[in-house]
Every structure is written in structure tokens, then in C-alpha cells.
């Protein structure tokens, strides 16, 4: 019995040690001097160089904090946009019967399948036509598409979750006189919290880590986001600041980690369907 009780924590601790080792190594390396990062493979630095954090933060004309603020802005807006727009589309696909539903659903899945690298140029040309490229607020190409539920991944995610919600709840509501809009408002919306939280977490983290699109559309150092700024440390043909790069990478993990810890609680509390009766 004790063995059984110990099995779970033991497994978890061992597993997390393995999973976390590379990250601990990264943390350790963020305190190594450039020369040590390249030559010393052990976790701990021989000489602690906390200066990496200060150097990394102040490495550019613009403080690294600015890049974090920009990233947070883009990621935050993306989260809101995705949650709202994808939820609407998902409700239609998951619960409502309408003409061509199967067709549109297949198209939606289809948009997930095309490798993005061939879309960059056509998209750039298109957004330029819209007048979204450059200007004082260059983030439009990164955010407006999310307002229109173009991130099919999240639509599909929410569809799958909604289909796990018993249909009886809708029907009870319908019998009580709810229209499809009422069902959405009073049944689906409150029950979609796990799906919404998952969507929020993923939107935030993916946007926080996205490189290629942000690279293409942001051209002003002051407007750069963290992933674009992180690459500035390493110019492989010349000057490279590996230590500060590690330091800033560690720092850029912090907000996403906190975001996750804050929101995962909402996943775990779960939903109490019986509380919604009546």
C-alpha cells in the first residue's frame, strides 16, 4: 500500500528530473561567460557571470523590457481575438445544423495542412495591398487575422471540446425557450472554459515564440518582439553574445510560465455541469 502510494510521486519526481535537466543546463549556462558556454559542458559555471542578465537587458539601444512589452501586447491581443472568434465558429460547427456544414468543416481542416512557408510571400503582398505593412503600428498583420478565426487549430480544438458537452443541456435550454443564441450564451459559453483556457494558453505561447511572421512584418527596433530580438544576439558570421542570449531566453520563459501557472488552475478546477441545471 505504501509502495503504491509512493509510486506516483516517485515517478513524477524522476520524470521531471529528466525533463528539466536541459532547462537547468540552460539556466546554468545563462551564468557562464561566452568562452565558458562554448567549452564547459557541465551544468554549473566555473565562474558565475550574473552580468549576462544586465548585459542582455541593456544590449541594444532599446531595453529588452521594451521587446517584452511588445510581445505581451501582440500575444495578449491574439489571445482575446482567438478566444472570441474561434469560439463563435466552433459553436456553429459543433452544435448547429446548417447547409454545407461538412464542406466548410473540411475546408477548415484543409487550411491547417498547407506548409506555411509558401504562404509568406502571397500574404505579404496581400497585406501590403491592404496597407497594413509598416506604418506606426505594424502589428496589424499579426493580429487582424486572429480576429477572423483564421487559426483553424483553435476552432477544431473547441469543436472537439463542445462535442463532449452533453446535448441534453442544449435541449433542456431549448425547451425552456432558448434560441440558438441563448443556448450559446447560457449553456455553451459557461461550459467552454477548459477549451477557452487551453486556447488562451496556446495562443499566448505560440505568439510569444513565433518568429517568422514577426520577423517579416516588424522592421523598427523599437517595435521588435522578444523572439525577433533574441536572434539579434547571435550573428553567426561575426559578433555573437551567447551568454546574454541565454540570460534573455531564461527571462522570456518567465512570463509564459507564469501565464501558464495562472491559467492552468482554471483547467484543473474543472467544470461543474450539474450546477447549471435549471
Amino acid at each position: 500500500m505504501t509502495l503504491q502510494r509512493l509510486a506516483r510521486p516517485l515517478t513524477l519526481v524522476l520524470l521531471s528530473a529528466v525533463v528539466l535537466y536541459p532547462l537547468v543546463w540552460m539556466l546554468g549556462s545563462s551564468f557562464k561567460s561566452q568562452e565558458e558556454v562554448l567549452n564547459n559542458m557541465s551544468v554549473l559555471p566555473n565562474v558565475w557571470t550574473p552580468g549576462n542578465y544586465l548585459d542582455g537587458w541593456n544590449n541594444f539601444d532599446v531595453s529588452f523590457g521594451r521587446f517584452f512589452v511588445n510581445s505581451a501586447l501582440v500575444a495578449g491581443l491574439t489571445v482575446v481575438a482567438n478566444c472570441v472568434s474561434c469560439l463563435l465558429a466552433a459553436y456553429a460547427f459543433a452544435r448547429l445544423k446548417f447547409k454545407l456544414r461538412g464542406f466548410w468543416f473540411a475546408i477548415m481542416i484543409g487550411t491547417l495542412l498547407l506548409p506555411g512557408h509558401v504562404l509568406i510571400v502571397p500574404q505579404f503582398v496581400m497585406f501590403k495591398t491592404f496597407g497594413w505593412v509598416g506604418g506606426d503600428w505594424p502589428y496589424a498583420p499579426l493580429i487582424v487575422p486572429q480576429l477572423l478565426a483564421t487559426e483553424a487549430f483553435f476552432v477544431f480544438l473547441m469543436v472537439q471540446f463542445m462535442r463532449g458537452v452533453p446535448r441534453e443541456l442544449d435541449e433542456a435550454a431549448t425547451i425552456d425557450g432558448c434560441t440558438p443564441y441563448g443556448v450559446f450564451r447560457h449553456v455553451i459559453l459557461p461550459l467552454s472554459r477548459p477549451a477557452l483556457v487551453s486556447t488562451a494558453i496556446f495562443s499566448f505561447i505560440w505568439t510569444w515564440n513565433d518568429f517568422f511572421r514577426q520577423l517579416v512584418y516588424l522592421s523598427d527596433l523599437e517595435k521588435y518582439t522578444a523572439p525577433v530580438a533574441l536572434t539579434l544576439f547571435i550573428d553567426s558570421s561575426g559578433q555573437s553574445s551567447v551568454g546574454p542570449m541565454f540570460a534573455m531566453s531564461v527571462l522570456s520563459l518567465a512570463p509564459v510560465f507564469l501565464f501558464f501557472v495562472a491559467f492552468q488552475r482554471m483547467l484543473v478546477e474543472g467544470i461543474n455541469t450539474s450546477g447549471l441545471k435549471g
Partner: peptide, 13 residues
């Protein structure tokens, strides 16, 4: 209603 809810997505598509 289906198409109402689908509008943003269709527009984006």
C-alpha cells in the same frame, strides 16, 4: 444562426 456564428470565420477564409 449557423451562418451568423460562422460569419467571422467565413470572412477570414
Amino acid at each position: 444562426a449557423g451562418y451568423v456564428f460562422l460569419t467571422p470565420w467565413l470572412l477570414g477564409l
